[in-house]
Write a protein that binds this DNA or RNA. Structure first.
Lengths: 336, 336
DNA sequence: CAGTCAAAATGAAACGATTCATTTTAAGCT
DNA sequence: AGCTTAAAATGAATCGTTTCATTTTGACTG
């Protein structure tokens, strides 16, 4: 069955294709009678615009691309929600790409979005993709970095100060009187992990009696956290840290699950635990989890807003770096 | 800056556009020397295929549409993951649409996908959209219903037997000796809610001494669960149920948070609690949550598989209804 | 009634990749 | 050299929408 085109509609309504297009896009330029007639025919034939043809003509699509590390992480679904809300205000759709911390997948999504001529790209970048992004920009596709600041101000970005966040978390643990801290996180290819650790190091450096060990994980997931937690359990009690800062809440929840498997270990009595992101499930954990809160929905909303302004402003737009400050949320897992 | 097209590449490489297209799509039909020369020019000019033009010519896009109730629900992100995996095997992308239990948004996504001429649609339907889906099918776009069976076998579907699941949950609570059950869930426009409740009713009907009350919620979220839980707290102790079956884990977690606010109420001692979906966070809850497990990733994978087979099979494809059986997972929240 | 002018309608051209019937090239054989 | 054939390359036509320079319509004026 051949699909219905504007030509078919025009023929059936006894008008030209130009008029059909005008009814669709500028009904005020067409006499009311004609509008009604054409719309009736559209309904009757079941005509639906072909978006590919529109895009071809327009030169760009009406979608934004959003590339995140992990859609299973509530932090990113919240962020995506904010982005979607802002995009919808301008009639744009959001295409969601999930890299799973994999550089190849990141490249694949960038290729896809480039072929689709998306309206703009929001990305929480992984690999060294400055050149890719410059190419996109040369084609007129604005880009905003999410959850990451650029050193050189060549891109707009919306981020949270992860160094400050890491510092907050470690300072809090130290203020409880803990002295043998452990940072659980990884891999180091993720900038957020590195920054949160640096922040923690800053706080630790201010106290000569406090040590910080690093327990590396190969992902930021509940599973990876559980593995890290189990690794702590097999150690001699005196050799264990008395406070753990996990690079995100998923890890923290995993660590908590592992620690809880032994009845004799108690959080926070024996080991205090703090996560990062303050996802909705943190408050509902076995031991309600202290965390560092980021305004996830707002980050997504702001990022799209910035993207659209950049798209408007054209080449001479002054790139803008927006940085939100994180916030400490204290719950039972670090009660004194 | 004008964008680079196959014409520019052809001119620069001294070949025809047809040859450039062949290099892109059927390199074996072109002599090795020419392939190399054209690819060199492509790299040099930074040519990127325009997907809109390809789609226009091809008549359909290389994406699938997936419409779900709530991307913030881990059940659906797991399902989406499975769908993405299977789609990637055939070089297809997945567009994710989030309805938030809103019929208007569901319609908007269907419009969008129809205009995009997507390869196929996976949908967990809300409103009465049989006609819309028939129109899609008439255009040659196959549709598979996810997490929902059709009564009339006119569509393929992949679902879990929610009535059996509801029954399992209630039977389990009854087997603990509980007699005043409450079902927390809503709204009734969501079929999963209705089925899980029916299943529970079946189990309750087998025991004359057991009662079942229904506490309606206006969403399947942690927040709605918390509200429902608070509503139980204000009642007189003797008036409270001794077991709660929540329509999904998000609700259950919310209920749990509310009940825990009172130090004197203990789960499961005073009130046993079971959820549904067995999301990753269920095991990590304050009181590890019993739940009904669904093979979420597999559901998504299977749904896309079915969709692709239906696309292959053409009009005469026998619609297939696949039903998975749910599984009871017992944890501390219903320990006896 | 001729003349003016805005509103309405027209239809060819353009967007960029793919297809396929045709032509060109080059290798192999007598 | 002449002939056959397969491989390689060609380029016009096509997909469906939008745009815009042009034409048509019809209402109104002096």
């Amino acid at each position: 069955m051949a699909s219905i085109s504007v030509n078919d509609v025009a023929a059936a309504a006894g008008v030209s294709v130009g008029t059909v297009s005008n009814v669709l896009n500028r009904p005020d330029k067409v006499s009311p009678g004609t509008v009604a007639r054409v719309q009736a025919v559209i309904a009757e034939l079941g005509f639906v615009r072909n978006d590919a043809a529109r895009q071809l003509r327009a030169g760009r699509s009406r979608s934004l691309g959003l590339i995140v590390l992990d859609v299973a992480n509530p932090f990113f679904t919240d962020l995506a929600r904010g982005a979607e809300d802002r995009a919808a205000e301008d009639g744009l759709a959001v295409l969601l790409g999930n890299t799973d911390d994999n550089v190849a997948r990141e490249a694949a999504y960038l290729d896809l979005f480039e072929e689709q001529r998306v309206h703009g790209v929001l990305i929480s970048p992984l690999g060294d993709i400055g050149e890719r992004l410059n190419r996109l920009r040369a084609r007129g596709t604005p880009t905003v970095l999410v959850d990451r600041q650029t050193e050189d101000r060549s891109f707009s970005s919306v981020a949270v100060d992860d160094i400050a966040g890491g510092r907050l978390a470690a300072q809090h643990l130290i203020s409880l009187g803990r002295t043998r801290l452990a940072f659980v996180g990884g891999p180091n290819s993720i900038r957020q992990v590195v920054d949160r650790l640096s922040g923690a190091r800053l706080a630790v450096a201010e106290h000569s009696s406090v040590s910080l060990e690093v327990v590396d994980t190969d992902a930021l997931s509940v599973l990876a956290g559980r593995a890290a937690g189990q690794q702590m359990l097999v150690r001699a009690p005196g050799d264990r840290p008395d406070a753990i800062f996990a690079a995100n809440d998923l890890l923290a929840i995993g660590v908590l699950q592992a620690l809880n498997m032994r009845g004799d270990l108690h959080v926070p009595r024996d080991i205090a635990l703090i996560g990062y992101d303050d996802i909705a499930f943190a408050a509902a954990a076995v031991v309600p989890l202290s965390s560092i809160r980021q305004p996830s929905v707002l980050i997504g909303y702001t990022a799209v807003d910035l993207l659209l302004r950049e798209a408007q402003g054209g080449d001479e737009f002054e790139h803008e770096q927006i940085v939100f400050q994180p916030e400490l949320v204290i719950r039972e897992s670090t009660a004194s």
